[in-house]
Simulated scan of single mutants.
Amino acid sequence: MSKAKSLFVRTTVALSTAAIATLALAGLAGPAQAESPVLGTVALAPTGGSVHDNPFVTAATTSAACPTGFGENAALKVGPPGGPYSPLARIGGLANYDQAPFTLAANRSLATALGAAPADGTYEVAVSCSGTTGTAPKDFSTLITVTGDSWAVKNAAATTTRLTAKPGLFAFEGQRVTLTATVRHNAAGSVEFFAGSTSVGTAPVTDGRAVLTSTTLPTGLLQLKATFTPDDPRLFVASTSQICYLVIG
């Protein structure tokens, strides 16, 4: 084999190996992560009552600010999941809704907003954000259930996350370590892995597990952590798992 051909082969192998390592670390080998259907959640006060109570709620607080550029107006509304919606209050026009989480209040009952006492089932209470360029494509949202003349917030289901590492207990510097987070309760979402306060990477949950492989964990006694974030925070609650792990230099 000529020197030029040998150099080409060695270079190709090196580049391929580096590309594989980069993909493993970033968790890009798995399927694409699902996008959250909402901007965040809405905390209601009170969390239940009569469909005839006026106002329906005294406070509906968003979990975050409106997206940048969509903070001119905010509207509180209710309807079946996905709409169509009916207003629960006048549109808020104080502006600056994209600066911080905020609170709106209803000025009518649930029955009045929907035009009649609602049928039993699940409804969506949402806050939409809008600006000079239009309305944000997603809302802050929470789900409620109606039974007879009563309503109550539909609480998100708890989840549990269990983190394991392979090889177990310890590894040597530069050794391939596979981190696996098992998420229970059939929850869709993603898991971000940490070594101490440093993010190692993020992987999607597939069939109840998120897997990420790294060869660059720092040396020393580490606190490895896996944080699960659900795709839909209205349905599932985030959860975290931690383990101690030793990387020998």
Rank of each mutant, 00 (worst) to 15 (best):
A100E: 11
S109V: 10
V125A: 08
G121F: 07
K154N: 08
V153P: 09
A105V: 12
S150W: 01
N107P: 13
I91W: 01
L143R: 04
V78G: 00
L143Y: 04
A117M: 10
T135K: 03
A117G: 11
A106Y: 05
P101S: 12
C129L: 03
C129T: 03
P84I: 04
T103H: 10
V153N: 02
T142P: 00
D149F: 00
A119W: 00
G79V: 07
T103S: 13
G148T: 10
A117T: 15
A106H: 09
L88M: 08
P80N: 10
V125G: 06
P118M: 11
V146E: 06
V153T: 10
A136P: 02
A105H: 06
A100I: 05
V125S: 02
G92N: 01
G115Q: 10
T122D: 11
S130L: 05
G93V: 14
T145I: 13
Y85L: 00
Y123R: 11
L143H: 06
T132I: 14
T103C: 09
P81I: 12
S141Q: 00
R108I: 10
V146A: 08
T133Q: 13
T147R: 13
T112H: 08
Y123W: 13
Y85F: 15
P80V: 14
P87G: 02
K154Y: 03
Q99V: 15
S130D: 14
R90F: 06
D139W: 01
G79C: 12
L104N: 00
L114I: 13
T133M: 13
T142E: 03
P101G: 08
A116T: 14
Y97V: 05
A116K: 15
A111Q: 11
P81S: 11
F140D: 03
G92H: 03
C129H: 04
V78A: 02
T142G: 01
P80R: 06
A119Y: 03
K138N: 02
G115S: 09
G134D: 06
F140C: 01
T133G: 07
A111Y: 06
V146F: 05
A152R: 02
A116D: 12
D120C: 08
N96S: 15
T135L: 03
T133Y: 04
G79Y: 06
G148E: 06
A119H: 08
A152H: 10
Y97D: 01
T147P: 05
G131F: 01
Y123K: 09
A117V: 14
P81H: 12
K138I: 00
A100N: 13
S130F: 04
G131P: 00
G134T: 08
I91P: 03
A105N: 05
S150M: 06
L94G: 14
L88E: 00
N107L: 09
Y123T: 14
E124Q: 15
